[in-house]
Simulated assay, not measured.
Amino acid sequence: MSLPLALDVASAKPAGKRPYFLEQEVERVLGIAMAAVQELAVARQRMDTLERILEAKGVMTREEIDAFRPDADQAAERGLWMQEYLVRVLRIVQQEGEAIAADARGDIRSEEVAVELSDRA
């Protein structure tokens, strides 16, 4: 996935105002932390699966995996992945910045349209 595509995917959000149940700043940090936790949990499960299969088939040991050092191309690919990952994890900060910019431009939000339409009924 390219960085521009990752930015588009990370920007996807439901219409309407984000509900907050705690202080907004606490919710923001919690959202970031939970995104990281989710990513890590999935990665750990997949990594464990791969290591067990490789070891069971006699392809390589876990020690060989631990000793691996990426070459320049592999390191660059990992760097791109890291940028895409950070975009996903920090999505809430980006979306809040976009909301602030939309307010500054005077953009109309979907919830405002809904209120206006319901007032007419």
Rank of each mutant, 00 (worst) to 15 (best):
E25G: 07
M82E: 14
G79H: 07
G31F: 01
R105W: 09
V29H: 07
A56I: 02
P4E: 05
V115S: 07
L86K: 08
E55Y: 05
G16P: 00
R109K: 11
A102Y: 03
T49G: 11
L22H: 08
G31D: 04
R44V: 13
E84F: 05
R88A: 04
V87Y: 01
T61I: 04
Q94I: 15
S118M: 08
L22Y: 09
A41S: 14
E25R: 08
D119H: 11
V9Y: 10
A35C: 06
V113E: 03
E96F: 02
Q24I: 07
V26C: 04
L30Q: 03
G106P: 00
F68Y: 12
V42T: 10
G16S: 04
E116I: 04
L5S: 03
L50Y: 15
L7H: 01
M82K: 10
E25V: 12
R28C: 02
E55A: 12
D73Q: 15
G106Y: 02
P70N: 02
E63D: 15
V26Q: 04
V115E: 11
F68T: 03
M82L: 15
R69E: 08
V93L: 13
A104I: 10
L5E: 08
E51F: 07
L54H: 05
I65L: 09
Q94W: 14
M47S: 13
R44P: 01
A35K: 04
Q94C: 12
